[in-house]
């Protein structure tokens, strides 16, 4: 455990509403995620796992506490820097894919590079590369809506990969897939983690998926109730 800290949350509290309707989604959570680690945030719905992921992904600010990325306090970053950071360092994989069904697979994969302002030829080259990594290069010209669920999730992974991220956030990545397709997607994600050293943060309620991670953080009612570290095999 000597790898540097990639993301650190310190006593993070997140509340919604005011007065009587005050709702505490996270009641003081501290975790330290190391570069190259795979971490599962596990819990039932309403446990605060999605809120924690949003905070770690810098999509939201904590009510109190601190989030640090590569040792730097995220609260000190300007909006522009936050946007650039999310674009360059993070990849997102969602249960519901969020693909544009009428656009081609290639167009969908390209989106993060388009946002980053990468030139056309370069982004097409990298999209083919990313699609090759998920073994879907032959579907580049197909419309996203014509793909199967497993293929869609592979497109989503290619989209997350295209920006060459250091952290991938996967929110219930296998939630919409049957178990055999789900296993394929899991293998793909853990491959990226082990072979490319991409830090993997998985939000799930699936214990089997969580067990494959280096560390499991169990959340309940906005608090960490259990943290299980798998024996390092290296």
């Amino acid at each position: 455990m000597t790898a540097p800290s990639a993301l650190r949350a310190h006593e993070v509290v997140k509340t919604y509403g005011k007065g009587d309707s005050l709702f505490t989604a996270l009641g003081g959570v501290s975790i330290d995620i190391r570069t190259g680690e795979s971490v599962a945030i596990i819990g039932k719905s309403g446990s605060g796992k999605s809120t924690l992921m949003h905070l770690l992904a810098l999509l939201d600010q904590p009510t109190s506490g601190q989030i640090a990325i590569d040792g730097q306090d995220a609260a000190e970053l300007k909006n522009k820097q936050l946007n650039a950071l999310r674009n360059h360092k993070f990849g997102f994989v969602f249960q519901q894919f969020f693909l544009n069904g009428n656009a081609s697979v290639l167009e969908n994969v390209i989106l993060p590079l388009k946002i980053a302002g990468v030139g056309r030829t370069e982004r097409i080259r990298r999209a083919h590369q990313a699609l090759a990594q998920v073994e879907l290069d032959d579907k580049a010209k197909s419309k996203a809506k014509d793909l199967s669920g497993g293929q869609k999730q592979r497109v989503v992974i290619a989209r997350a990969l295209i920006g060459d991220p250091s952290i991938i956030f996967a929110d219930e990545p296998t939630g919409n897939l049957d178990s055999s397709t789900g296993t394929l997607i899991e293998n793909l994600l853990f491959d990226l983690n082990s072979k490319h050293g991409i830090t993997l943060i998985v939000v799930t309620h699936d214990p089997d998926l969580a067990e494959r991670c280096d560390r499991q953080i169990h959340l309940k009612d906005g608090l960490i109730v259990k943290s299980v570290t798998r024996k390092a095999t290296v």
Binding site: A57, L59, N79, K80, L82, N83, A84, L85, R86, N87, H88, F92, F94, Q96, F98, N100, L111, P112, I115, A116
Partner: peptide
């Protein structure tokens, strides 16, 4: 809505 959320998550600024 979801597409806008996705683009924002991927670092697209509000002005864009």
């Amino acid at each position: 809505t979801k597409e806008i959320g996705l683009m924002k998550a991927m670092g697209m600024s509000a002005s864009r």
